[in-house]
Simulated assay, not measured.
Amino acid sequence: MLLWLLLHPPLSSQPSAEPTSPSSFEIPFKLQSPSSSSPDDYVYATFAVPASTTASQAVSLWLSSGALPPSTSPGQLSFFEDAVSSVLLARSSPLPHDACTAPPAHRIFSSPPPRALNLFLPALHEARGEPGGRRGEAGLSLRPAASMKHLPALAAQVSEGVPGKLWVEVGVLGGLFSRFILESMPGDVPKLVMVDLWDEVDIYSGGEGEGNFEKASRSVAPWAGRVDMRRGWSWEVAATLEDASASFVFVDAGHSFEDVSRDLEAYWGKVAVGGLMAGDDYVDGFVRDAGYTFGVKSAVDAFAARKKHRVYMTTNRDEETGEPLDDVHHQSWYILKCAE
Rank of each mutant, 00 (worst) to 15 (best):
F79L: 15
F29D: 06
A105Y: 03
Y334D: 06
E208L: 14
Q14M: 12
A156R: 00
R306K: 04
F25Y: 06
G207L: 14
G129M: 04
P34D: 12
G211V: 08
T72I: 09
D98S: 03
S64K: 09
F294G: 00
D259A: 15
G232N: 08
G132R: 10
G211A: 13
L6G: 03
P96M: 13
S92D: 10
S13P: 11
D40S: 14
P34E: 13
K337Y: 04
R230L: 01
A216S: 13
M229D: 10
L3C: 06
T293I: 05
H97T: 15
E265H: 07
H8N: 15
P186D: 09
A55T: 13
L124Y: 02
S23E: 09
R134V: 11
M194Q: 14
V237Q: 03
A90S: 13
A153G: 07
C338K: 10
I203M: 08
S21Q: 02
M313S: 09
G129K: 06
S147H: 09
P104I: 13
V158C: 01
E210K: 14
S24D: 05
D326A: 14
M148L: 15
D263L: 15
A83Q: 03
S73V: 11
M185S: 04
E210S: 12
A302V: 11
K270L: 02
E169N: 07
W198V: 10
M194V: 15
K215G: 12
G139N: 14
Q331I: 05
L89I: 13
K270T: 06
L142H: 03
A116S: 15
M1A: 05
Y42R: 00
G175E: 12
R134K: 07
A105H: 09
S38F: 10
A238E: 01
A138M: 07
G164F: 05
E242M: 00
R218M: 12
V49F: 06
M148A: 13
I108E: 01
R143P: 08
G232Y: 13
G275K: 09
A127Y: 12
A90F: 04
L119C: 11
L166N: 12
T321W: 09
D281G: 04
S71Q: 12
K297F: 05
I335V: 15
P19F: 12
G66R: 01
E210P: 00
M185W: 02
V193Y: 11
H97Y: 10
I335P: 02
G132M: 04
Y334G: 07
W62A: 09
S71I: 13
E26M: 12
V84G: 10
L77Q: 05
I335W: 00
S64V: 02
